[in-house]
């Protein structure tokens, strides 16, 4: 039957397309599975759009405009980037917690995947790539809707799509790492406990300057704040070096999550 393959070269020597071939097999698996529950897939798009119109149009009518660093900005323009960044976070967390917990504990999917050549790193990379692909479609659709509604003043906004992918990467990686520590579905509540305050207070609905200085530091420490401010800068065409700080923060956040996830999958399943 099968003849022996020669030993593959060391892992760090693999060129990118080959290195991603194994995670891609898991993405393909998820795509096939998703065909059987496509409705959840579609509903993920509507949530941020509903928020955008409820907040931007509804509340915007009451608030009018907000003052950001001395500039008057229509409320919808202010809040649209926040909704886009938040939905990148929510989607990533959704895909990397509940779905992953089910596969880890109930369906034993990863156990059988690990008896093939895929390694823990490939599982982490595959699941997170899947979350990002999904997020990418949502981000692009959201941006289109917001632009058509007239809430996007700058062409730099196109860069908000990769920015949202970076946000998704961070939250999917850290979310998946957190999931490996969960013992039961009840523990999923802790995720909401972390997500909800970030959603409400990361300069999403009003500018950072609204907070007293001490609280501003707390807000600035959270990952979603960096995501929101990055996307807002890009969508309003307000480019400055500070944006690079946000990118750096999110990159480190992502790397930590990926590292922890890979280690934990090995610890849990290769016993």
């Amino acid at each position: 039957m099968a003849t022996g393959t020669t030993a593959a070269p060391a892992r760090h020597a693999l060129p990118f397309p080959v290195a991603m071939a194994r995670p891609a097999a898991l993405v393909e698996r998820n795509l096939r599975a998703a065909r059987h529950y496509w409705l959840t897939f579609v509903s993920g798009f509507f949530e941020p759009v509903f928020y955008l119109f409820a907040m931007g149009v509804g509340i915007g009518a009451l608030v009018g405009s907000v003052d950001v660093d001395g500039r008057e900005i229509p409320y919808a323009v202010f809040v649209a980037p926040a909704m886009m960044a938040t939905s990148a976070m929510n989607g990533a967390v959704y895909d990397s917690t509940g779905n992953v917990f089910y596969k880890l504990k109930h369906s034993k999917l990863y156990r059988s995947v690990l008896s093939t050549p895929l390694r823990p790193w490939d599982i982490a990379a595959g699941e997170i790539s899947w979350a990002l692909l999904r997020g990418l479609i949502y981000s692009a659709a959201f941006l289109l809707v917001a632009a058509v509604a007239g809430f996007v003043p700058s062409w730099w906004a196109l860069l908000a799509i990769p920015a949202c992918t970076l946000i998704g990467l961070g939250f999917a990686a850290v979310g998946m790492a957190a999931t490996t520590y969960m013992r039961s579905w009840n523990d999923m509540d802790y995720v909401q406990l972390a997500i909800l305050p970030m959603f409400l207070f990361s300069a999403t609905f009003y500018p950072l300057a609204t907070y007293p200085p001490a609280l501003q530091w707390v807000v600035q420490a959270t990952p979603l704040y960096h995501g929101v401010d990055l996307v807002r800068g890009l969508m309003m065409g307000d480019l400055h070096v500070g944006l690079l700080v946000h990118v750096g923060y999110l990159a480190v956040f992502s790397a930590l999550g990926l590292w922890a996830t890979t280690r934990r999958i090995g610890t849990l399943l290769l016993t």
Partner: peptide, 14 residues
Amino acid sequence: KARLGVVPQTDALD
């Protein structure tokens, strides 16, 4: 693993 076939004690089908 590339050259192995594994049938675990409990079926872990997808």
